[in-house]
Design a protein around this nucleic acid. Sequence first.
DNA 1: CTTGACCTTTCCCTTGGGTCAAAGTGTTTA
DNA 2: TAAACACTTTGACCCAAGGGAAAGGTCAAG
Lengths: 274, 274
Amino acid sequence: MLRISDFAQLSRVSTKALRLYDRLDLLKPTHVDRQTGYRYYSAAQLPRLNRILVFKTLGFSLERIAQLLDADVSANQIRAMLQLKHAELLQHLERDRLRLLQVEMRLNELEREGTMSTYDVLTKSVAAQPVAATIGLIPTYEDCEPIFNRMFDTAFQYAFQQGIKQCGYGIAVYHETKLRDRDIPVEAAACIPELIPSSDLVFSYDLPAVETMAYTIHRGPFDTLGSAYSALLAWVEKHGYRSVGSTRELYLAYERNGDPAQYVTEVQIPVEPA
Amino acid sequence: MLRISDFAQLSRVSTKALRLYDRLDLLKPTHVDRQTGYRYYSAAQLPRLNRILVFKTLGFSLERIAQLLDADVSANQIRAMLQLKHAELLQHLERDRLRLLQVEMRLNELEREGTMSTYDVLTKSVAAQPVAATIGLIPTYEDCEPIFNRMFDTAFQYAFQQGIKQCGYGIAVYHETKLRDRDIPVEAAACIPELIPSSDLVFSYDLPAVETMAYTIHRGPFDTLGSAYSALLAWVEKHGYRSVGSTRELYLAYERNGDPAQYVTEVQIPVEPA
DNA sequence: CTTGACCTTTCCCTTGGGTCAAAGTGTTTA
DNA sequence: TAAACACTTTGACCCAAGGGAAAGGTCAAG
């Protein structure tokens, strides 16, 4: 009969851990004194404790270990739990591999540029979104704001006429076409809570859901949006994605004739693993 | 000005998390109503929140992220933190790779044998241990118990004569020699708290510390110790170690003329990565 | 004015123990 | 035999990053 500290020394497991394992029914002392509550262990319990430690190094939780050590558990169930753990570990490995790559990229950037990019790119999934949209052509990226304003006015006003009380943000959608820097076709869409009838000028439809949307947030005037696109496209390429849809601009903070420095725009590109 | 739930929807971060980030000074609302305590956010805070999310996906803790986002932190400090994270991730990868291998080995074993080995092998580091030891020859592994008993008697009795009150466990040390199955040289050592003078028959010295000791626990009579050795040696080979020292047997539960089924023996092999 | 949606703070819960603290035990020594 | 000291017990609080729920205050629409 060993006292808890002797057994702890023998097994190199702390007394605190042994008491926890007792409470969790993982490893009960062979004997507990009725009077004093003292726990007494036997060297014969070391195999069980060792098995616990092995499963712990495999990354199992104490709760799962309790299940694994249960005498009634079949080899099949054990295999299932091992396979589950196997899959889990593969996930962990993949996640950490990606993290490692990203940390390395950040480090490279820091070495090259001396500073980190102001654009942080993330991915998210985006649900389908009912919109009221107009289509137009932008002659050039400079001074396109008045044209956009007219297009959004058309869309939002039409939505109001159709009884929409609460409109959401404005979204610009650039459909995939041959690259060109003049006469770019663009869609100006107003987010609305539900579909409405379409008219000649304004189409109401569901902006499709996107499984993986890479996006970044641009703060400031629209004429510097180009650097956000650069950062976003560079990120997409470096992270092994490819663009698979229409890019979008979501105008999160915009006030007509307001201070352009306060504008906030989310730039989005649907992607999928290359 | 956005209410917390709007900002949460926009950023896809739960209100609970936003309140936590407020409390941790990671992301304070632009405005908090004095009367009601309502938090009001601005879309202009999305870049900062995005940067928080990026660092979170890299695996940084919120506390570290707070440091990284601190305006006063230099590029050098950021680089240092990234490098630290890099090293940490490498460790994680290595650990999970090993875990994966071990889970796979367990699965293989389960497929082949239909059950898991009764021997669980672990490694630990072992400190130097003062002992009083005698040396002898074992003619054969069968019926060696009386010889061992005499040797241990000699060692323990000598220790008592030298004033040792509390002796520890008995240890048998098999020094590396050419493999042979008869006339095996062996050392029977009594663990003692401190060195004592040596005599003709009993040597007192420090059993050397071992950085990495592979060990397993055997329960039962000594004549089945062979399977423990088999399991241990197989483990050592499969896990990419090689034996680098004298194997030891530590008698954790032994009673002369007791029930051999109750014996508990720890079998140890010093190893290092091959 | 009421209702329902939304906001606040506060408390408890999660893992695997570490770290005290108060109080009771066991052994040893004077 | 009693004090000293080492050991044990339970209990409470702590870590990270929130999730969940309760109790009560606020806001906007009908």
